[in-house]
């Protein structure tokens, strides 16, 4: 399966697991500018975007929070809920009107504990999302669009 699609929950999880997950989720919406979570907060929820855009940001005193990355339709918002100490590493807010499936992280973690096979597929899915974001962040670190310094004196 293409990595890009493997990041999507509905592709990453087998039908049975997907339906179990969706049973503990419910639909929510956020107005533009609404905060979804803040850095340092308890990571007890996560979302899958159905429509709209969310922006991940970082708290910098005296500055409007710089946006790290934006997430759109189908994207997973939040992964800190799966790993100890379950604390948000970044903040997030709705950039445009946002509709999403919201999940109770504690419930999902319990389901993972009870059914190791379910837990494995969830962890595999979130792991791939993380790998993808790491690669994208690395690509941006390289500053592809910048001009490289000439290697040799010319």
């Amino acid at each position: 399966m293409p990595p890009s699609l493997a990041l999507r929950m509905n592709h990453a999880l087998p039908v049975e697991h997907r339906e179990r997950l969706l049973r503990v989720g419910h639909e929510v919406s956020f107005r533009p500018g609404a905060r979804m979570f803040d850095e340092g907060g308890h990571a007890n929820r996560f979302w899958i975007i159905r429509d709209g855009t969310a922006a991940l940001d970082m708290h910098v005193p005296g500055r409007r929070p710089p946006v790290i990355e934006t997430l759109g339709v189908g994207d997973l918002v939040g992964w800190s809920w799966l790993y100890e100490p379950y604390v948000w590493q970044l903040g997030a807010e709705a950039l445009r009107q946002l509709r999403a499936h919201e999940f109770d992280a504690v419930a999902v973690r319990l389901m993972c504990l009870k059914d190791p096979e379910f837990g494995r597929t969830v962890e595999h899915w979130v792991g791939r999302v993380l790998a993808h974001r790491l690669n994208a962040a690395r690509a941006r670190l390289v500053d592809l669009y910048g001009i490289y310094e000439t290697k040799e004196p010319r």
Partner: peptide, 23 residues
């Protein structure tokens, strides 16, 4: 339109261009 380094006033996407493919 997505950028690597947004300024303070940027209200559009941030990230690599491939992430727009899904939309």
């Amino acid at each position: 339109v997505t950028v690597d380094q947004p300024g303070a006033d940027w209200r559009r996407d941030v990230g690599v261009v491939t992430q727009l493919l899904g939309r």
